[in-house]
């Protein structure tokens, strides 16, 4: 198992290098001179030339890449044109907000999809199953941003039961910065006012973000469970008189999760990138929105940095998914060893 993890991590390094090269090349072949862009149209030519030299833009592409990657490894992504601050500072500020949102979405996604999938499979072809099916079609079809607006209107405006917009209500102090995840930081410092306030702010955007993939996963899990219920080994286990509780929780559940886990992992990671509309609607100061603004303003340093971070997170999720699947499925685990 340890070797398996080590192998995946080792492979991950190469993937990251590949991503960084691609991002770098894309950032450089987009028309426009970064030095001129950061100084503005009215700066004199000699100042631009000076900056070009400083930014190593006068060197060949491979050499430029080496300079860039050296900076990146030291946590220096350059300056953002938009915010006029170092990109790394921006990321430190915005990434935890999105991570917190996605983590909460993930909790919704995992718990609800498993619950709905199990219910639908257990009561398949009954009213419960059909209701979940109908709900799923609606949930999958409705775009996250539309749901976000709907939730915002209903809970924030019509009923006003849950605080909306931003991460905290005005007047509530942000917790001491430990991880940047407000809910986590406030909880471990014992600041419960902030904890419950930020939790309230999290619920609606997290739910809006999770809804689509949640129902998709529930359908997938149901299909996988029903498929495995018809397998010979289930009727063999039944024939040996094993209690149905044991058959459901041991013999059925484990093989049924194998095809669901990778899709779940990918959907979770995609939430990072898909969050920008929801972040925009809930005025959530997240990195997805930051990255979108960078794209719209050709903020090259910010774009490369955001996508490199996304790439790394994708990779991490992928490795975790691989580990989970391998621990569930001996055919994969043992296949990898030989």
């Amino acid at each position: 198992m340890l070797r398996f993890v080590g192998k995946r991590l080792f492979e991950g390094i190469f993937v990251l290098i590949g991503i960084s090269i691609m991002l770098f090349i894309i950032a450089r072949i987009i028309p426009g001179d970064p030095a001129r862009m950061s100084l503005g149209p009215r700066a004199p030519q000699f100042a631009v030339d000076e900056l070009r030299k400083e930014m190593h833009l006068d060197k060949s592409l491979p050499v430029q890449y080496l300079y860039w990657i050296k900076g990146v490894l030291q946590g220096d992504f350059g300056k953002s044109i938009n915010t006029k601050r170092p990109v790394s500072t921006d990321i430190k500020e915005f990434l935890p907000a999105t991570l917190e949102l996605v983590l909460f979405s993930g909790i919704f996604l995992i718990i609800l999809s498993i619950l709905l999938g199990l219910l639908a499979a257990k009561y398949r072809d009954t009213l419960v199953d059909n209701m979940i099916r109908g709900l799923s079609y609606i949930g999958i079809a409705i775009p996250a941003f539309a749901l976000a607006i709907l939730l915002l209107l209903l809970f924030g405006y019509v009923w006003q039961v849950i605080p909306v917009l931003g991460r905290l209500s005005s007047g509530v102090a942000a917790p001491i910065h430990i991880t940047g995840l407000f809910a986590f930081d406030s909880l471990i410092t014992g600041n419960f006012t902030t904890f419950f306030d930020t939790l309230g702010h999290l619920i609606l955007p997290a739910l809006a973000l999770a809804t689509g993939p949640l129902f998709q996963e529930a359908r997938l899990l149901r299909a996988s469970l029903v498929d495995n219920m018809g397998k010979e080994y289930i009727s063999v286990a039944t024939g040996y008189g094993l209690p149905s509780r044991v058959i459901m929780t041991r013999y059925l559940l484990r093989p049924s999760f194998i095809p669901v886990v990778p899709v779940m992992g990918m959907d979770l990671a995609s939430l990072m990138g898909n969050a920008f509309l929801v972040e925009k609607i809930f005025n959530w100061p997240g990195i997805s929105r930051y990255g979108m603004n960078a794209l719209l303003n050709k903020d090259l340093n910010a774009i490369s940095a955001v996508f490199l971070v996304f790439g790394a997170i994708f990779l991490l999720v992928n490795i975790i998914v691989d580990i989970i699947v391998a621990s569930l499925d001996p055919r994969i685990r043992l296949g990898a060893k030989s």
């Binding site: 010979e232 080994y233 063999v236 286990a237 039944t238 008189g241 093989p255 499925d329 001996p330």
Partner: peptide, 25 residues
């Protein structure tokens, strides 16, 4: 019925590959 299944009758399936659960030893 469970008692009969556990103690009296057993059945061998025609598909040995499908009769064993792939994820348990």
């Amino acid at each position: 019925l469970q008692q009969i299944r556990r103690k009296n009758i057993s059945m061998i399936s025609q598909e040995p590959s499908a009769a064993l659960n792939p994820v348990f030893t």
